[in-house]
Simulated scan of single mutants.
Amino acid sequence: MQITRQADYALRAMVYLARLSPNQRASTSQIAEEQHIPPSFLAKIISQLSIAGLIHTSRGARGGVTLARPPEEITVLDVVEAIDGPIALNECTSPSGVCMFGEDCPMKPIWCDTQKELIDRLRRTTFAQALATQTR
């Protein structure tokens, strides 16, 4: 299993923004260059993150991108789901729960437990925590 490249780029952009001081803005060109993200791809990501309420964008000479909330209040799960939608490791773990074997499948509880653990971990991990572990 692998997250999409778009989600990976979104996470990189959010880490970049989380490093800035609270009143500091970054241009999308700065983010793209320093995080090695294709600018056209970043534009789409920025739009999705803005729609999700995770960042604020403003145009003009003093424009740029900032986090909508402090890094302590934005989780990795927030970003992944804003880009990729809800996490589902397997079809049987999705809300529709489609499985040809139904509840008799011995793998379903394993997939469901694993998915729950992953979601819980991503929900508990804020960008402030991610940055704190980097400096250790």
Score class of each variant (00 low, 15 high):
Arg12Lys: 11
Arg12Pro: 00
Ala13Asn: 01
Met14Asn: 04
Val15Met: 09
Leu17Pro: 02
Leu17Gln: 04
Ala18Arg: 00
Ala18Lys: 01
Arg19Met: 04
Arg19Ala: 01
Ser21His: 00
Pro22Glu: 00
Pro22Asp: 01
Arg25Trp: 06
Ala26Phe: 02
Ser29Gly: 03
Gln30Thr: 09
Gln30Met: 06
Ile31Gln: 01
Ala32Val: 02
Glu33Cys: 09
Glu33Phe: 15
Glu34Leu: 07
Glu34Cys: 01
Glu34Arg: 12
Gln35Arg: 15
His36Ala: 10
Ile37Val: 05
Ile37Asn: 02
Ile37Lys: 05
Pro38His: 11
Pro38Asn: 07
Pro38Glu: 08
Pro39Glu: 08
Ser40Gly: 11
Ser40Phe: 15
Ser40Ala: 13
Leu42Ile: 11
Leu42His: 04
Leu42Gly: 01
Ala43Cys: 02
Ala43Asn: 13
Lys44Leu: 15
Lys44Phe: 14
Lys44Val: 14
Ile45Phe: 11
Ile46Tyr: 04
Ser47Ala: 09
Ser47Gly: 11
Ser47Trp: 14
Gln48Ile: 06
Gln48Pro: 03
Leu49Gln: 09
Leu49Asn: 07
Ser50Asn: 15
Ile51Pro: 10
Ile51Arg: 13
Ile51Ala: 09
Ala52Tyr: 14
Ala52Asn: 11
Gly53His: 15
Gly53Asp: 12
Leu54Tyr: 14
Leu54Ser: 09
Ile55Asp: 07
Ile55Phe: 10
His56Asn: 12
Thr57Phe: 03
Thr57Ser: 01
Arg59Phe: 08
Arg59Cys: 00
Gly60Arg: 00
Ala61Ile: 00
Ala61Ser: 07
Gly63Lys: 02
Leu67Trp: 04
Ala68Gln: 13
Arg69Gln: 14
Glu73Asp: 15
Glu73Val: 12
Val76Asp: 01
Leu77Trp: 12
Asp78Lys: 10
Asp78Arg: 05
Val79Lys: 07
Val80Glu: 03
Glu81Ile: 06
Glu81Asn: 05
Gly85Thr: 08
Ile87Phe: 08
Ala88Pro: 04
Leu89Ala: 04
Asn90Ile: 07
Asn90Gly: 08
Glu91Thr: 08
Cys92Tyr: 03
Thr93Gln: 13
Pro95Ile: 08
Pro95Leu: 04
Pro95Gln: 03
Ser96Phe: 12
Ser96Asp: 14
Ser96Trp: 12
Ser96Leu: 11
Ser96Gly: 12
Val98Asn: 13
Met100His: 11
Phe101Asn: 04
Gly102Trp: 00
Gly102Asp: 06
Gly102Tyr: 04
Asp104Cys: 02
Cys105Ser: 01
Pro106Thr: 04
Met107Glu: 11
Met107Asn: 09
Lys108Asn: 05
Pro109Asp: 08
Cys112Ile: 12
Asp113Cys: 05
Thr114Arg: 09
Gln115Lys: 06
Gln115Trp: 09
Lys116His: 07
Leu118His: 05
Ile119Phe: 04
Asp120His: 10
Arg121Tyr: 13
Arg121Val: 13
Arg121Thr: 15
Leu122Gly: 04
Arg123Val: 06
Arg123Thr: 15
Arg123Glu: 13
Arg124Trp: 01
Thr125Gln: 10
Thr125Asp: 00
Thr126His: 06
Thr126Tyr: 02
Thr126Ile: 10
Thr126Ser: 15
Phe127Lys: 13
Phe127Thr: 09
Ala128Asn: 11
Gln129Ser: 10
Gln129Thr: 10
Ala130Thr: 12
Ala132Ser: 01
Ala132His: 01
Thr133Gln: 05
Gln134Tyr: 02
Gln134Ala: 11
Gln134Cys: 00
Gln134Asn: 02
Thr135Arg: 07
Thr135Gln: 01
Thr135Asn: 01
Arg136Gln: 06
Arg136Ile: 05
